[in-house]
Structures are given as C-alpha cells and as structure tokens.
Design a binder for these strands. Structure first.
Length: 479
RNA sequence: CGGGGUGUGGCGAAGUUUGGUAUCGCGCUUGGUUCGGGUCCAAGAGGCCUCGGGUUCGAAUCCCGACACUCCGACCA
C-alpha cells in the first residue's frame, strides 16, 4: 500500500526518461509552473529564490569589479536593431514585435528586446565623448524575449531572466581583459557556488554571438552527458561602435571608436544545477545557493517540548546566518523527509524525544544520504562543516562525470563511435575550417563546444581533413 | 518549422474500437488516529470530458477544424 502511494508521486527515474525526469523535478519541486502562453513560465517562489541567490552572488562580484547597474527600456525601434548587420541577422528571426499602441498602428514597429546591445550602444553614443568617459561598465538585470520554437523549463524560455553586462573601453587590450575577467567570474561562481565544474574556452566563428569578434564560454556537462553553455562573454572589437557611431577623443585628441564587450548568464543556470546534481529522489541544491540550507524536522512533534526544541535549533542556526526552515505541519515525518529531499535541501536536522534525552540531533545529508548523530553543543560547527562538505562532494562528483566522459580522439571514426556508444565530450585537434565543423555535425551529430584554454597536443593534423592543426577543440551534443 | 504522441475534477489514469445517467487512485476539506522514511480509519467537496463546428433522438466516444502540452529532428542562451 505504502509502495503504491509512493509510486504515484515519485518522479520519473533518470534512466527511464531523462527529459521527463527533468520536467518532473521542475514542477514537483515547485520551481516552475506552465502558463497559457507557450514558452512563458512562472518562476514559483522556490525557483525564484534560487535565482535571487544567484543574482545576489554575481551582483556582488560585478560591483566588486567596478560595474554599475542600469535599467534600459524593453522596446527597441526596428531601425535601431538593424544598425549592426550580423546582429540583426542573428536575432531578427526570433523577435516579437509591438505594432500597435492602443488602437493606433505604430509608424515604426518596436521589438521586445531579445538582448540590449543596440540600446546600450545608442545610449553610449550619447554619453561618451572623451577618453575621460571611459571605461563605461554597465550591467542590467532584466528579462528578454525570444520567440523560440520549442521551449523547456529554464533551458529555453521565450521570456527569461538574465543579466547582461555591456562595457566600453579605450583599447582592445582593455576590452579583451574585461571579457576574460567576466568569464573568470562566471567560472568561479559556477565552481565555487554552484558546484558545477566548467570547461573554459573560446567559441568557433560558427558558434559565436551574432556581431561578436570573439565569444568566450563556459561549458558544463549534464548528467545525460550533454553540454550546457552556462555563461558567455563577448568581445565586440569596435564593430558596434562604428555601426552606432560611438566616438571619443583620445589623449592625443584623435577621434576613436571604443572597444566593447558584453556578457551574460540567465535562469538557464538553474536548469544546469538541476541536471548536474539532481537524482531520482529529486533536486539536490548546492548549499551556497539553496534557498533552504537546513530543514529542521521535529519527530513525534505532539510530545511536549519537541516543537520548541526544533524551533530552538532553527533559531540557533539562523543566528549563524544559515538559511533554515522548520516544518511543524501535521504531515508525517516520512512525508517531510521525502518532500525536502525532492526540493533538494542540503541538510536535514531531525530532533525527537529520544534525541532530547541524549542532548543530540540527527543530521542527514541530501547528497549522500549519510546520517550523523550530533551533540547539540556542536550543532553550529557541524552544520557549517557539513554544508562545506556537501558542496565539495557535489563538485567532485560532477567533476568526475565531466572527466570520465571526455574522450581524446584522433579520428572521426573514433569520435563517431564514442558519441554513439558513450556520449559526452570528444577532444580532437582541429584545423579551424568551418567545413570540418559542418562535417562533424553531419557525420557524428556533434557541434563544437569550445576551443578550451587548457590545450593538449593530441597530434599535428586535423582528423577531419588531414590539414595541419594547432588547436584542440571539444565536440559534444548541446542543449 | 517538419514527424510522432497526448489532451477526461488540482495531479495521474480508465472509459473512446462497438454512441446511452462520468469512473478509479492520489491530492483537497472535516473529525479521529499515528509520528525515527511518503501513518491508518471514516465522512465530504470538487467535472461546459481542451476549444469550435458538424452527424445523431442522444457525443468524452463518430467526422472536420483549431489550440495546447510533449517527444524526435532543424534553429537557438
């Protein structure tokens, strides 16, 4: 009977159907709700709280590195969007347009921003005149809209929350340094806060951002061995500046175009967290962004003093800055265990009459399921220690997944065989030609993920065309 | 945008082949009971059967159309 009940509410097993498992977690852990508009999702309080924590962490880093937040308009006139050729080609197909104001048809239709390069450029052209005005380092937290054909919770929304940084610099060197700095901030955040190991690198021309000269990326590997681009940072050169007529007088009173960057991460990261860490019991949240880090559950809560004891432990942890919740609802303890596991709460503290007699509590880890009997005198220190241990273990586990599923290959056949049988990433040398990328897509079903910063010399020639090759590239199937 | 699948109380399904009073489980409400891994018992509430047309005395069921979700491709953060 109990088994039947569990089956009804259980999420689909990862091995049975990975995509269904993913969707189950999104809805059953109360992160997301669907709406009546395709591709538009509601971030429910628990899902939004994860985003708020990501936002808080990154925003602090942006400010530490001298960036200022701004708020730009949602609507972009068509003429403005068209100023940069590559950019408009990249985004026009997925723009949504406002054509009417009230009942009046507009003279010029307005695009609901898919990204804000053009608005920033227009603004910068007004406010930048002198080398003294540089650098300009702006960021905005907002939502953007892209009319995607297919959508999935977090991974592909038609409207999604993100952050877009846009900076202007006097020199190319400075702009490139900025681009690289922001990629490092993303990479550190992924690894140290989200416990997601990354591969840092550069996108090929085929995969780079529309209008960029160079796109840096961090790529993560999900549980199903597919790649998720988790953050990007672009160097634009002075292409946009020229298109938008942004000029400044340099120290020699020469009129110059500044060099530009943009960089962003989105709520997609939450999809990455789910698919990197989750298991068949639900979500597993990295402690440093978990909205609830510790849930305190009273056992036999009708017995005198138990609820008070649980609340007391929660108060002690809250005083230490731990995000803690106590659940004294009349659900059974077993139900609560399953519920907070589904929601990925890193640590569970149990306290019942037996514990109270012994001046102890039980702490259970979400990542390993291990349970510890902990003296109440050591509560704070043990929780702090375990939160770090959970983070570290989650990171190492994900790193192992990445490393064990990345294969150095020296022939197309080998890539094809590995991708067909194992999945994951394949590393090969590459000549740099688009034709070879297209060939890989056609024959192995993979796209280039990045040319990693950490290069290895796997040979001297491109295994696809046989021409000399200097760079190692990573191939994979991407989300 | 191409190919498949699915739309039935909040969720998951049965019923559709062969038209005839809308069924089950979970959840929800109330009362009791239990509490260290999704307690148990009882009583209740809740449905334009996705939407729009048609056929029929009668449609969840048959026919036509739309929409949505979902999976697999192509495109994309």
């Amino acid at each position: 009977m109990a088994k039947e009940k569990k089956k009804v509410q259980a999420i689909t097993s990862m091995d049975v159907d990975f995509t269904q498992w993913y969707t189950d977690i999104c809805t059953k852990a109360e992160l997301i709700d669907y709406t009546s508009v395709k591709g538009m999702f509601i971030l429910r309080p628990y899902g939004y709280a994860i985003w708020e924590n990501i936002q808080a962490g990154l925003d602090k880093e942006f400010k530490r590195t001298g960036h200022e937040n701004v708020a730009m308009p949602t609507l972009i006139p068509e003429s403005l969007l068209q100023k940069e050729k590559d950019h408009v080609e990249g985004f026009a197909p997925e723009c949504a347009w406002v054509t009417h104001g009230g009942s009046e048809k507009l003279e010029e239709r307005l695009c609901i921003r898919p990204t804000s390069e053009t608005v920033f450029c227009d603004h910068y052209s007004h406010i930048v005149h002198s080398w003294r005005d540089l650098p300009k380092k702006y960021n905005q937290w907002c939502s953007v809209l892209r009319w995607e054909k297919t959508s999935r919770p977090f991974l592909r929304h038609r409207e999604f929350l993100w952050q877009e940084g846009h900076t202007l610099h006097a020199t190319a060197e400075e702009a490139i340094a900025e681009t690289e700095q922001m990629l490092e901030i993303y990479a550190d955040f992924c690894e140290n806060v989200l416990a997601m190991p990354v591969v840092k690198g550069i996108k090929t021309d085929k995969e780079k951002f529309s209008g960029a000269e160079r796109t840096y990326t961090i790529e993560c590997m999900m549980h199903d061995k597919k790649a998720l681009q988790s953050g990007t940072s672009h160097y634009f050169g002075d292409g946009f500046a020229k298109a938008f007529d942004i000029t400044f007088a340099d120290k020699n009173n020469q009129l110059s175009h500044p060099h530009q960057t943009s960089w962003g991460v989105s709520t997609r990261m939450i999809g990455g967290i789910i698919m990197t860490h989750g298991d068949d019991n639900g979500l597993i949240l990295p402690p440093r962004i978990a909205p609830i880090q510790v849930v305190v559950l009273p056992i036999a809560q009708h017995k005198p003093g138990v609820i008070e004891a649980a609340q007391g432990l929660a108060d002690r942890l809250a005083a230490q800055g731990v995000r803690v919740k106590t659940d004294v609802s009349d659900q059974s303890p077993g139900w609560k265990f399953a519920e907070y596991e589904m929601k990925g709460v890193p640590l569970r503290v149990e306290i019942g009459p037996k514990d109270m007699e012994k001046n102890q509590c039980v702490i259970a880890r979400r990542d390993t399921g291990e349970k510890y009997f902990v003296s109440l005198d050591e509560l704070e220190s043990k929780v702090a220690e375990l939160l770090d241990a959970v983070h570290e273990h989650m990171f190492q586990r994900a790193k192992r997944n990445l490393e064990e599923n990345t294969y150095p290959c020296t022939s197309v056949e080998e890539v094809k065989e590995k991708m067909a049988t194992q999945g994951g990433f394949a590393k090969t040398m590459w000549c740099g030609d688009l034709a070879c990328e297209l060939y890989m897509k056609e024959n192995c079903g993979v796209t280039s993920r990045c040319i990693p910063f950490e290069q290895e010399q796997l040979g001297d020639t491109c295994p696809i065309c046989g021409k000399p090759a200097k760079k190692m590239i990573i191939w994979g199937v991407a989300y």
